[in-house]
Simulated assay, not measured.
Amino acid sequence: MRISTKGRYALRMMLDLALHDQGEPVRVKDIAAREDISIKYLEQIVALLVRAGYLKSIRGPQGGYRLVKTPKEYSLGSILRLTEGSLAPVESLEEDADPADNTENAATMMFWQKLNQAIKSVVDSYTLEDLMDWQMQAGDNYVI
């Protein structure tokens, strides 16, 4: 399994929004500048996050985006699944997989299931709030 730039940038963007939440909307161009990510690419990710109800769009000259929920309510797994789709290491473990297409033998399937459970346990046990804490501990403090 490999996380694409879309998933990685979505996590960075959500973290940036959480760290810069001062009660005012955050502009995409500001996030793009801080994170050194293309504005056009971020706009695509923002559209996905808004449609999913993760972000709220505020229009106007003072507009921008805000998190809909608190950082502790966003699991990193939910953000990654939204941007990446399934995180299953093999196709046969994806939610919509046809059981008839499973060509794995019992031993290898057991390994893939264990790997899938390990991935789920990690991505679903951490939240955006955990990323914020780690960012602060790293000393790269975004406090304005």
Rank of each mutant, 00 (worst) to 15 (best):
L42C: 06
Q22E: 15
E35Y: 08
R66H: 04
Y41I: 10
G53F: 06
L48W: 02
E73A: 09
K29E: 14
D36R: 10
I31Q: 09
G23P: 11
L67E: 06
D30K: 15
V26S: 12
R34D: 10
I31M: 13
A33I: 04
L49N: 09
L49S: 08
Q44K: 11
R34A: 15
G63Y: 01
E35W: 05
I37F: 05
Y74W: 01
V50G: 03
Q44Y: 07
Y41Q: 09
V50R: 04
I45N: 08
T70S: 13
I39N: 01
A33R: 14
V68K: 11
P25V: 10
S57K: 13
L67K: 07
D30H: 15
A47T: 13
K56Y: 03
S38L: 05
A52C: 03
R27V: 08
I45E: 08
D30S: 15
A47P: 01
Q22Y: 12
E73C: 00
L55W: 01
Y41L: 12
I39Y: 01
R27W: 08
A32W: 06
S75L: 08
I45T: 15
L67T: 12
R66V: 15
K56G: 09
V26L: 14
E43F: 02
R34I: 09
E35V: 08
V28E: 02
L42S: 06
V68S: 06
R34T: 12
A33Q: 12
Y41F: 14
P25D: 09
Y74S: 00
A32C: 10
L49C: 09
Y74K: 00
Q62W: 08
G63K: 04
V26M: 12
P25I: 07
I58Q: 02
L49K: 09
K40G: 05
Y41P: 00
Y54E: 12
D30P: 00
G63C: 02
R59V: 05
P61W: 04
K69H: 12
Q44L: 14
I58L: 04
S38N: 10
Q22A: 15
A33E: 13
R27M: 13
K40S: 10
I39S: 00
S57M: 02
Y41T: 13
P71A: 05
I58C: 01
G64E: 00
L42Y: 03
L49E: 11
G60N: 07
S38V: 04
A52L: 00
E43C: 10
Q22M: 12
T70A: 14
E43A: 13
I37D: 05
E35I: 06
D36H: 07
K72V: 11
L48S: 14
E73S: 06
Y74V: 01
A52Y: 06
V50Q: 01
L42F: 02
I45K: 11
V68D: 05
P61E: 11
P61I: 08
R51A: 13
K69G: 03
R66G: 11
V26F: 14
S57F: 02
K29T: 11
Q22L: 14
S75F: 04
G53D: 07
D30E: 15
I37Y: 03
P25Y: 08
P61A: 09
I58M: 02
G53I: 04
R27I: 06
R51K: 15
Y65N: 04
G60Y: 05
D30W: 14
D30T: 14
S75R: 13
I39A: 00
L67Y: 05
I45Q: 10
K72I: 10
Q22T: 15
I45S: 10
T70Q: 12
R51H: 12
K69Y: 11
I45G: 09
P71I: 01
P71C: 01
S38W: 02
I31T: 12
